[in-house]
């Protein structure tokens, strides 16, 4: 009975739009959105293709505090164009990270938190999205010298494409069971490799391989959290105070190359075989 009560009191994070996500995560005092909707920095490319723009181009940048730590949240709006990265939204994230880096280099760190609900490059702005994502990658690596850069993937979209690489560069990655993380979206794999290789309608298979629980079990994400605003906020508050440290996920190359040696490339990967391989060679799971 108390479990049911607790469940009913939970506030879903997944159901919130990007701006509300930021407002709920930051301390109430001193929240400040940068380049908000009334500045109307919208996509210059979508209207040329007869596509309706959103006033913030689907990215919310909000500064504030979490406990005693200064943070900046960059949140992708999952509902607008599949959470895709266009020129403006990409520049908002890369630019905010560049400002945070300048502050960190001046001894005034601001911890970035990236809410990565994104399909990756917005194909209607293809090369502008790709370029911006490369610039985001650069900033994440540079910022990690100074402190944590935290990625959060909760669903419903998941995190794919070039932005999954951004997730892989974050010093800590927080995911829910509903989250998915992978380079190529299921539809794209099916298109390129065929339905036998990857059936984009096979939801159990997709979540078993790309889902948040599997990614934590294999060490490709750090923490699993429920779809609960308070729980995500509490977890973030603990992570924002972490010290800079080398990131095993990108620098322990020998471990990952040893892992690949154990993989049978033509056998169909399952959640179990993948977990076992990671457990044997990398000490995860």
């Amino acid at each position: 009975m108390t479990d049911v009560a607790a469940l009913l009191q939970r506030q879903s994070f997944v159901e919130l739009p990007a701006r509300s996500r930021c407002q709920h995560l930051l301390d109430d005092a001193d929240q400040r959105e940068l380049l908000g909707p009334f500045e109307r920095l919208t996509s210059p490319w979508l209207p040329k293709q007869n596509i309706v723009t959103q006033s913030d181009d689907g990215v919310v940048i909000m500064r504030g505090t979490l406990g005693d730590t200064k943070v900046v949240i960059a949140a992708v709006e999952p509902a607008f164009q599949g959470g895709s990265m266009g020129e403006v939204g990409g520049a908002k994230i890369a630019g905010a990270l560049a400002c945070a880096l300048a502050d960190a280099e001046n001894g005034d760190p601001v911890v970035p938190i990236l809410l990565l609900e994104t399909g990756g490059v917005r194909l209607q702005e293809a090369n502008c999205g790709l370029a911006a994502i490369a610039e985001i990658h650069d900033m994440i690596v540079a910022l990690r010298e100074h402190g944590p850069v935290i990625g959060v993937i909760t669903g419903p979209v998941g995190c794919f494409g070039g932005m999954s690489i951004a997730a892989g560069l974050c010093s800590e990655l927080i995911v829910t069971r509903e989250a998915r993380l992978g380079l190529n979206g299921p539809q794209v794999i099916e298109q390129e490799a065929g339905v036998d290789e990857f059936d984009s309608r096979d939801r159990p298979m997709i979540w078993s391989l790309l889902g948040g629980e599997q990614r934590v079990a294999t060490g490709l994400a750090e923490a699993l959290v429920g779809d609960d605003v308070a729980a995500i906020r509490d977890l973030l508050a603990r992570h924002v105070t972490a010290s800079p440290k080398p990131l095993a996920r990108t620098t322990d190359i020998a471990r990952f190359e040893a892992l690949l040696e154990t993989v049978a490339p033509t056998e169909r990967a399952t959640a179990r075989t993948t977990r076992d391989a990671f457990a044997q060679t990398t000490g995860a799971a």
């Binding site: 701006r19 909707p37 009334f38 959103q54 689907g58 509902a79 607008f80 164009q81």
Partner: peptide, 8 residues
């Protein structure tokens, strides 16, 4: 001023 909704 005020804002509501998203272009979803």
């Amino acid at each position: 001023r005020a804002l509501a909704g998203v272009v979803g």
